[in-house]
Design a binder for these strands. Structure first.
Length: 229
DNA sequence: AGACACCGAATAGTGACTTC
DNA sequence: GAAGTCACTATTCGGTGTCT
């Protein structure tokens, strides 16, 4: 499909604020077959060819893009004729390589773009599944998550072991208030120690916390009121 | 409604290569 | 070496969507 026919169905575009860097046009030499596949995919998805390339470059690790097969330059015999429609050279016929033309941020390589588009086509066909992160990194992260989950479970167990057992009839006496705050029945903690203990336990049992417990929080508050903290 | 931003297509300009 | 061809990049153009 020559360039002149490629404006038939324009995809819907959104205005995106400028990033400060002017985009540039990339002419990507490729076989006509590959160009048609890419164009068809873009039309199917309702995006531009530049969007396809951008999506791959943003989501797929660079190493994966670089390792993807290059769809390659067009074969030597494959050339298309383009007639200049205006300007000083109006009517002049150019024989040139079939190509895709996209406008993207500067600093990209044509081969990189062709590989990215090839990857997009392969992924759309289901021929290629891309891991968004390198397997090694993914494995490491999974190990870390597992270790953290185990640690969290240990902490939960420890907490449940040391947390006070809620009183059946609530907090009515000073002794019960001391029990709820984790002091021995005969302890004589001063107001400062009592306040500090209340705050620490409230932080743990507050309903908004991950270990929140309304019953225990209610009894903590009752103990605070009874001891007039 | 008009300004703005983006897009792909079209074209100009230029340099490398080929042919005579 | 001059002229022609080819292929590339840069720029321009017209169309379209978004924002104010």
């Amino acid at each position: 499909m020559p360039d002149s026919l490629m404006s038939a169905q324009r995809p819907i575009r959104k205005a995106v604020p400028r990033t400060g860097e002017r985009s540039r046009t990339y002419a990507i030499p490729c076989s006509a077959g590959f160009r048609d596949q890419v164009t068809e995919l873009a039309q199917q998805r309702g995006v531009s060819i530049a969007d396809l390339a951008r999506a791959i470059l943003l989501t797929v690790p660079e190493a994966t893009v670089n390792a993807a097969p290059d769809p390659g330059e067009p074969p030597a015999h494959e050339r298309e004729e383009v007639t200049l429609l205006s300007g000083a050279s109006k009517g002049r016929v150019l024989r040139r390589k079939p190509r895709l033309q996209v406008r993207l941020q500067p600093g990209l390589a044509v081969v990189q773009l062709r590989r990215a588009l090839g990857l997009a086509v392969a992924m759309a066909r289901g021929d290629h599944v891309v891991a968004l992160e390198a397997p090694a990194a993914r494995g490491k992260q999974a190990d870390r998550i597992k270790a953290l989950e185990e640690e969290l479970e240990r902490l939960r167990l420890m907490l449940s072991a040391v947390a006070f057992e809620p009183l059946k009839d609530g907090v009515r006496t000073r002794m019960q208030a001391l029990y709820v705050l984790g002091f021995p029945a005969d302890a004589q903690p001063d107001a400062r120690a009592l306040k500090a203990r209340y705050r620490m336990l409230a932080m743990i049992f507050h309903p908004d916390s991950p270990q929140g417990d309304t019953l225990r929080m209610g009894q903590l508050n009752a103990a605070r009121d009874l001891l007039r903290l």
